[in-house]
């Protein structure tokens, strides 16, 4: 009996829950993206408004710029030598497509970073 009590107490003392959050870049501002005019705004206008992109992709004589903000939330439970871990990572992301004259032609935006959740691996995605 005494052994069981000691073992249970040890297990409780060695149990740990943890949470962590990581972020990359600054959150995208929807109003700044919406203010850009397809067919009018130029790459210079975009750079002045949004700053330097995270990535520039050459598409023949055209180009595409990526802006993003990523949030990752990790939650876990450790029971002595076993750890249960859940990682949820989502982004705000915006791709801007320019033509040969560096005029903005297409915009694609996804704002999912706020949907990132702390959950355990056995819980629904939420």
């Amino acid at each position: 009996m005494r052994t069981h009590v000691v073992a249970a107490a040890a297990a409780l003392l060695l149990t740990g829950c943890f949470m962590s959050r990581d972020r990359i870049n600054e959150p995208l501002v929807k109003q700044q993206i919406d203010a850009l005019q397809v067919g009018t705004s130029t790459a210079t206008d975009v750079a002045k408004s949004l700053g330097a992109p995270s990535e520039v992709v050459q598409l023949g004589k055209r180009s595409a710029w990526r802006y993003d903000f990523t949030t990752q939330k990790t939650a876990g439970l450790t029971l002595i030598v076993v750890t249960f871990l859940n990682t949820d990572r989502r982004s705000d992301r915006c791709w801007l497509f320019f033509d040969e004259a560096d005029v903005l032609r297409h915009v694609g935006t996804t704002l999912d970073a706020d949907d990132t959740r702390y959950t355990m691996p056995w819980q629904d995605e939420g």
Partner: peptide, 10 residues
């Protein structure tokens, strides 16, 4: 240690 990890990425 043993680890069970679930990833929900994007």
């Amino acid at each position: 240690s043993f680890q069970y990890e679930r990833n929900l990425i994007e």
